[in-house]
């Protein structure tokens, strides 16, 4: 008779990994648009370059592993990694930095662990951390200045291409500079908060256009939560713990970066909604997610304030990636019908 005897369930929801990843990529577009509008074409070019590199490296590794390319590439995870790296890197970073970061992320931090779903660390942040540590000069001096900060329009598209690919860093001279976070940290050592904030970069509590970028990413993140792609636990925990640390430890604006700068500058929102929530490397239990997010917030504040780097999302996330499995083991939810949740690993038998 030849009846199909598959096991239940026989129906499936409309969800799929490629759809999830595509939705995340779409949610970054508002932020990308704002960056491009305020800071020039650098990030846009980087995103395209990184995406292409990511897909190409993944295809190369898959063919070495003798896997079907179309099936694995269509899940959009490589594309998403590329997009995130492109968004994270400085706009005027030379092309080879983007290449190295993305290729390393895909090949070493993802495929060599077994491909999608098997990587213990966030691939995008592994690539970013690699280039940050290996090429500190380029990574700290390639940041773009917004119109507000520099007083002139941003660099043209062709010129930006030249800067990135031809290495004509001189073209970007008037257009690049330190990020507000970085600037504040150095300036506050010499002057008071008021004097710092009066500068063109800040213009009061605003931070040179970075706040719009972060708000755009916040909007995209809220869309993701609404679409139930990510849960609210990690972003909320991260932002709350960051805020609490800033309020409790750095309330003195004359000595420490103020809260508004922490929340709305740098890669905070991008990190909270798009990077820390990477499901593969994050904690999975609801309570575990809260602890994971809180840990990232605390580490972020610590490294930003007392560490050598102006922005530390990558390191904070990578450090908490180490702890995720342990957090998972101890934050099992209480199952229906049980009095208490079970904690920890099962006792060894034999």
């Amino acid at each position: 008779m030849g009846l199909l005897t598959l096991s239940s369930p026989h129906t499936h929801g409309p969800n799929s990994t490629s759809k999830v990843m595509a939705t995340v990529i779409l949610a970054t577009l508002p932020g990308l648009a704002v960056i491009t509008a305020l800071f020039g074409w650098g990030t846009f070019i980087n995103v395209l370059l990184a995406s292409a590199t990511a897909v190409a490296s993944e295809a190369a590794i898959l063919s070495i592993r003798k896997r079907p390319l179309a099936f694995f590439l269509k899940d959009n995870t490589a594309l998403l990694t590329g997009v995130l790296i492109g968004l994270a890197l400085p706009p005027f970073a030379p092309f080879w930095i983007t290449l190295v970061a993305t290729a390393f992320a895909i090949v070493f931090a993802k495929q060599l662990y077994g491909g999608m779903g098997n990587n213990p660390f966030n691939p995008a942040m592994v690539g970013y951390a690699l280039v940050l540590v290996s090429f500190p000069v380029q990574m700290t001096t390639s940041w773009a200045l917004s119109t507000q900060m520099s007083g002139q329009a941003t660099l043209g598209f062709a010129d930006t291409l030249q800067v990135i690919f031809a290495g004509s860093a001189s073209l970007a001279d008037g257009f690049s500079g330190a990020t507000p976070l970085d600037a504040y940290k150095h300036l506050i050592a010499k002057g008071t908060a008021d004097s710092v904030l009066a500068e063109a970069t800040f213009n009061g509590w605003l931070n040179g256009g970075w706040e719009w970028v972060n708000l755009a990413f916040l909007a995209g993140g809220l869309v993701l939560i609404w679409r139930r792609i990510i849960s609210w636990h990690i972003p909320l925990a991260m932002l709350v713990s960051l805020s609490l640390c800033s309020l409790m430890l750095g309330w003195d604006e004359d000595m420490y970066t103020p809260l508004s700068l922490h929340l709305l500058s740098g890669a905070t929102m991008l990190g909270a909604f798009f990077i820390a929530t990477d499901p593969v490397s994050a904690s999975t239990t609801p309570r575990g997610k809260l602890i994971y997010g809180a840990g990232i917030g605390i580490l972020l504040y610590v490294i930003r304030t007392w560490g050598a780097y102006p922005d530390a999302v990558a390191f904070a996330v990578l450090l908490m990636n180490f702890a995720a499995p342990f957090i998972d083991a101890y934050t099992q939810p209480r199952t229906y019908g049980h009095a208490k949740a079970k904690r920890g690993l099962p006792p060894k038998q034999r």
Binding site: L6, H12, G114, G115, G117, S231, P279, Q332, P333, T335
Partner: peptide
């Protein structure tokens, strides 16, 4: 009711835990 698609790797998204009526961790 199309037959089941080929399974891909688990991305540890946790949607299964959100859906579980017994409060388990299906992942």
């Amino acid at each position: 009711l199309p037959p089941n698609d080929i399974a891909m790797a688990c991305i540890r998204c946790g949607m299964c835990a959100d859906a579980c009526p017994a409060d388990l961790l299906p992942q």
